[in-house]
Computed example of a mutant assay.
Amino acid sequence: MQAQLQHYLDKLAYEIDSWDLSVSLKNNDRVIVIDARAPEAYAEEHIPGAINVPHRTMSDESVAQLDRAALIVTYCDGIGCNASTKGALNMTRLGFRVKELMGGLDWWKRDGHPTAGKQAAPGNSEIVCGC
Rank of each mutant, 00 (worst) to 15 (best):
M1P: 10
M1T: 08
Q2F: 13
Q2E: 15
Q2D: 15
Q4V: 11
L5S: 14
Y8W: 15
L9I: 13
L12M: 14
Y14L: 14
D17G: 12
S18M: 01
S18H: 02
S24Q: 13
L25S: 00
K26P: 04
N27K: 12
N28D: 14
R30I: 06
V31Q: 09
V33E: 08
V33D: 09
V33L: 00
I34C: 05
I34A: 11
D35C: 04
A36G: 07
A38V: 13
A38I: 13
P39K: 06
P39F: 00
A41W: 07
E44L: 07
H46D: 01
H46P: 02
H46Y: 11
N52T: 04
N52S: 10
V53D: 01
R56E: 14
R56Q: 13
T57H: 11
M58D: 05
S59W: 01
D60C: 02
D60P: 10
E61H: 11
V63Y: 01
A64E: 01
Q65H: 12
L66I: 05
D67K: 01
A69W: 08
A69I: 09
A69P: 05
A69L: 08
L71G: 00
I72R: 06
V73Q: 03
N82Y: 09
S84N: 00
K86Y: 12
N90Q: 08
R93Y: 10
G95L: 05
G95E: 00
V98Y: 05
K99R: 14
K99V: 08
E100I: 06
L101P: 09
L101E: 00
G103P: 03
K109Q: 13
R110M: 05
T115F: 02
G117D: 00
Q119G: 03
Q119N: 13
A120I: 03
A121Y: 10
A121W: 07
P122Y: 11
P122F: 08
N124W: 05
I127A: 14
I127P: 00
I127L: 09
C129D: 13
